[in-house]
Structure formats: structure tokens, C-alpha cells
Amino acid sequence: MSEKVPMTPEGQARLREELERLKKIELPQVVKDISVARDHGDLSENAEYHAAKERQGLIVARISFIEQTLSRAEVIDPSKLSGSKIQFGARVKLVNVDTDEEVVYQIVGPEEADIKQNRISVSSPLARGLIGREVGEEVRVVMPAGPRTYEILEITYA
């Protein structure tokens, strides 16, 4: 029995789009590149051929990974959630108690986490520290860069 992978509908859609792009565009292109490189002769010293074969392996591995992830996806729509406690899918507004810096994060599945988009994995130290907490609580989290203390300002589900 495989473990379920929590995912938002947007995360599922992004993975499906990536899978389609890999299967319909990138894989056929790399197969053409291999064919062209093969036509150049001696494969033992053909850098184009070896690079294309390596890229093909990476694409095939990524396709397999995405298919496995989607097959285990447990899609959770944050817009259908509510409550005063933080759970998967929540957007959480925090203030760093030491610096007064405010930040908003959405707690998402591991495959859709993207710190540049303020989406953190449900399995990250910060998200684990926030799950089950409420507005007004302070949360002390040990992060890779050292301990941080946040106060929870707002919880929304969109």
C-alpha cells in the first residue's frame, strides 16, 4: 500500500501539465536528437549522443515519478476547508517575533512546494510546527538557519 501524497487541485494540474509536456514535446524531441547524433557516426566519442541519451533517461525518470505521484495523489481543495486551526492548504500570515517581518505561506504537498511562491511543504519544519495551531499563538521552530519564533496573525482557506 503506497502512502498518499497530499496535493492541492492547482498542484495536481501543474503536474499533469508537466507530464503532458514531457510526453508530447520533450521526449519526442530527445528521441530525434538521439537519432541525429547517431547518424554522426562513432558513438563512443559522440558527446551529442551521450548528452541526449542522458537527457532521455532524466525525462523518462521524471515521467515515471510524476505518474507515480499522481496515482497516489490525495487532492484536497483548500477552498472547501475552514476552521480556526491550521491544516493542509491553509494560507498563514505570520510575523517573526524577533524581526517584525511579516510573511504569508500556503501549506501544500511536497511536490508543489516552492519557496519563491511562498508555498511550503506540509512536511517542512515550519509547516509541522504550524499544523493544529490557532491565530494568536506563538510557534518556535528550529529551521536550518536556526531557531525562529513566529506569531500567527491570520489563517485563511482560499
Rank of each mutant, 00 (worst) to 15 (best):
E20F: 06
T69L: 14
V122Y: 01
R91F: 12
K80H: 15
A52H: 07
V139H: 03
L126P: 11
I152E: 05
V5H: 01
E154S: 08
L27H: 06
D33S: 08
D114H: 00
Q117A: 14
A61S: 13
G129L: 02
E134N: 08
R133I: 12
F65K: 12
T69K: 07
V36D: 15
V141I: 08
V103D: 13
E111T: 02
G41L: 09
E54W: 02
Q68Y: 09
V36Y: 11
R119V: 06
G109D: 11
L130T: 03
V141L: 03
L19A: 04
R14M: 15
E154T: 00
Y150H: 06
F65Y: 12
Q12E: 15
A90T: 04
V139N: 08
K23N: 11
R140E: 15
I120N: 04
E17L: 06
V30S: 02
N46F: 09
L70I: 05
A145N: 08
A127R: 00
I63E: 15
I115W: 10
I155K: 05
H40A: 14
K32W: 10
E26W: 00
Q29D: 14
E102Q: 11
K32V: 13
F88R: 04
A51Q: 13
D39C: 00
E137M: 10
R140M: 13
T149A: 09
E45S: 09
D33H: 02
Q12S: 05
V141S: 04
E138W: 01
E151L: 07
P125G: 10
A13M: 13
E45M: 07
L58W: 11
S71F: 04
L15W: 09
M143P: 09
A145V: 11
R148E: 15
G41Q: 09
L58M: 14
S44V: 10
V108H: 02
T99E: 15
E151P: 01
